[in-house]
Amino acid sequence: MEQMRYEAPDTVDAAVALLVGAGGETRILAGGTDLLVQLRAEWIEPDLILDVKKIPELTEISKENGGFRIGAAVTGAELGEHLGVKKAWPGVVEAVELIGSVQIQSRATMGGNLCNASPAADSVPALIAAGATAAIAGPNGRREIPVEDVGTGPGRTCLAKGEIVTSIFLPSRPAHSGDAYLRFIPRTEMDIAVVGAGVSLTLDGGGKCSAARVALGAVAERALLVDAAARALIGTPVDDAALDNLAKAASAAARPIDDKRGTKEYRIKVSGVLARRAAQAALERARQS
């Protein structure tokens, strides 16, 4: 039986080199809030655990082109304490802060939430709605792709061997815009989303919606960007009729399964409910911005 190995490099290049050189299964350790559970349950038996928390680039938040670049290993707690990001993208920060308890927040990261590729990951619909991109480093250099392209299915990502997500970029926040993320869980805390909905929208001078992005979590094999739902808002004053159409479009886009956390029918119904409520919250923020 091969023994598991632990490495904690301090540069991205070193991390990529370790990943490329590793035989067998490798796992990235950021916050570890998913990884350690999987290890303990013996669902995975990796040969290499690569701790990325010693890489400065992955643990920093920096300003870039009017937006923010957030290291993939920045914790939820650190993000929540960053007033700049919180002001610009409150929906994203709220989504990250919904992940688990205070204890989890001290460890959990957006990069981990994204790359664990759970369809129910809370931060992902909010990031998709925000138009965020993920920076990826690998043996063939670096690339930047939309967040919605990272996850491809439960536990699966588009990352090739040797690649890691190094940061997530949140673009500059347009004027008169707002974002929000809501999820439904049976309890008030500590559950995995049964449905999640992220909405980001921009208003024109006349109070009509000029741009919108709507994303749903936990209703498909990965988080969905729902264009039809966004179209229901664009060009409208985001009134009841528009919100009804949004809700219908969201429910129509949902293609969930029955599982231990909720039924298919329930998720379809609540997709619309939450999309509507998230849009109302985003609208309120856009009006106040």
């Binding site: 916050g31 570890g32 303990r40 701790d51 914790t75 204890q103 989890i104 001290s106 460890r107």
Partner: peptide, 24 residues
Amino acid sequence: GDCGACSVMLDGRLVCACLVLGVE
């Protein structure tokens, strides 16, 4: 990480000790 019975402070932050590796 679901029950908090192992809560400790790690470098000033509240964590579940069950979700931190010893080698970390």
